[in-house]
Design a protein around this nucleic acid. Structure first.
Lengths: 154, 154
DNA sequence: TATTGTTATACTCTATAACTATA
DNA sequence: TATAGTTATAGAGTATAACAATA
């Protein structure tokens, strides 16, 4: 039994759906990433959370959950992990003592820069299917979707 | 502490990365989907596998794994689930008795059509951030990435 | 009363390795 | 020897509910 061309995943029914496409590409990227970062051993969400803290000094855990889609109970372990590595600092907010004020450390910035560099390298083989112009288009379109997602739950 | 605009997820470091965008949108779609299909209770991968079987009558489990990114051990439970629901039929291949020949049933086609209809409905609020033309562009660009992913592991 | 963060817990997903039957 | 599918299992991810502290 020969494979009937794997690229043609049902043009009839799935053509108008977004989720399958996102899922397929993301599975590939996630696997390549975890294979290439066996030294760091990042938990799911730690990378994104670190990036959010880097760009939003003083965010709370709750805000990170909204920005990344992380569950608030899962966020605890994620923030703990970043803190143990000394990639972030946490203290209670003066205005609202329920909240944490999270900021990235110098070591955290170095780790993030390292991760971003590696990620770019990992994504390159996939993104090389697109021209520079197409990449920019793709990113702009995806950004519109991300903004919509964030706006809907703000 | 005010949130400094959640849409702006670090323009400095993450701007050139694909994975975050895919992940964020996919988390949203996956949650909305599972919330809207509590009656069907689909296991992860069953939907995609069913769609692949629909468009590739006679595929083997192995081929489904390649097309969907599913692990071969995980595929067993997925195919079992589809079979128990009588959405697919399975028999051993005559040419190679190690392989299964999987085909979708009439009930499977109805279930798939129902799922696709629901999914379209679920994706609409997110996709409405784009014009018709932009959606077509996005899908075409993502398809190029999917084809690259499939080609790399063929 | 509502919200932030925490813990316990249960369920699911994913990956590995060892196995069988066929090739 | 290699491949298709299976099983057992361990580890990670995800979600829910109950809770403490604070608002």
């Amino acid at each position: 039994m020969k494979t009937p061309k794997p690229a043609a995943i049902d043009r009839a029914t799935l053509d108008e759906l977004l989720g399958f496409r996102l899922r397929r590409v993301q599975i590939r990227l996630a696997r390549d990433f975890s294979a290439a970062t066996t030294d760091h051993v990042l938990r799911s969400g730690e990378y994104t959370a670190l990036a959010v803290i880097a760009s939003h000094p003083g965010v709370s855990q709750n805000e990170i959950c909204k920005a990344t889609g992380l569950d608030k109970s899962a966020a605890v372990a994620v923030i703990d992990g970043l803190h143990e590595r000394k990639w972030i600092t946490r203290r209670r907010s003066d205005q609202d003592r329920r909240r944490y004020v999270l900021t990235i450390s110098a070591a955290g910035r170095r780790a993030l820069a390292d991760l971003v560099g590696r990620t770019r390298h990992i994504e390159e083989p996939v993104l090389s299917a697109l021209s520079t112009r197409e990449r920019a288009q793709l990113f702009a379109l995806l950004d519109k979707l991300v903004e919509r997602v964030l706006a809907d739950q703000a």
